[in-house]
Design a protein around this nucleic acid. Structure first.
Lengths: 143, 143
DNA sequence: ATAGGTGCAAAGGGTTTGCAGTCGG
DNA sequence: CCGACTGCAAACCCTTTGCACCTAT
């Protein structure tokens, strides 16, 4: 996702209206590394906007995704997680604490993406989720 | 998934009852490379077992997953796909025809899994979905 | 005989939709 | 002002659950 100001001007120049709800959602997503799902965003922002509806949250998230400012990923089975990081990257899901963190390709030896072709199939995107136990939880589990 | 006969004896020796519905579902999944979802399985098998219920399909699939005979993956956002291939592998989803095919690690240069640790995080499983255009559709699209 | 499985319908959880009222441009 | 957006409730889709009946062992 671009900076708050850039997103705002992109919306403005594309004829989108800048409602308080949209601004709040954009601000919430900017630099957000927690991969929130829509219901969480709704719950959080409802504190400040008590009448905020699900439809507005979903509409705004879908709109931001459609213009490429955020992406959505199925990290768990249950629901969609939204991510302001639009550069290709990998998600790591910790089975103990439930946190989802980003891993960038530079950090992984032996893994070179994008691979653009396998067995004649053209590849244009990849969704990679590693699951396991995160550094913090590993330390905590040692007795 | 093991062979039909092996699955049957595993169930028998574990005290599971061998109902016609279960046998049909197991037979349907054996060597199935289409990554079907529960509703598709239900629809298909309903032809032969008109009273087959959703609960039976889901119960059986969940049972088979719990004993490790099949796995479930979220290839699309919408629903869970079941796969009799339990060896770690990658899914390729074709955006044109919608088919999902398996890719094995041997086929991918530069990709060596399992990677067991990244940044101190212990990794025990990975879900990898490549999306793009499959060989068949690439040929078909050239004009 | 009996535990476990089936089928039905209803409930559940996340997401979308329809529509009247509202507000940003 | 007007068209796009909001909020509400209902609808939606896939999956699970509750429960009476049934069936494999």
């Amino acid at each position: 996702m671009h900076s708050f100001d850039s997103v705002i001007s992109r919306l403005r120049s594309n004829g989108f209206k800048l409602t308080p709800q949209r601004l709040a959602i954009i601000k919430y997503m900017e630099n957000n590394k927690t991969h929130p799902h829509a219901l969480k965003i709704h719950k959080e922002l409802k504190k400040k906007y008590p009448t905020l509806s699900f439809s507005t949250v979903y509409n705004t998230l879908n709109m931001l995704e459609s213009i490429g400012e955020i992406t959505s990923v199925n990290i768990f089975d249950e629901y969609l997680n939204f991510d302001p990081e639009t550069k290709p990257h990998i998600h790591f899901y910790c089975k103990v604490c439930g946190e989802v963190t980003d891993i960038f390709l530079e950090d992984v030896d032996g893994l070179s993406l994008p691979i653009d072709e396998i067995n004649g199939n053209l590849i244009d995107s990849a969704q990679i989720v590693f699951k396991g136990i995160c550094k913090k939880c590993r330390g905590r589990e040692q007795q």
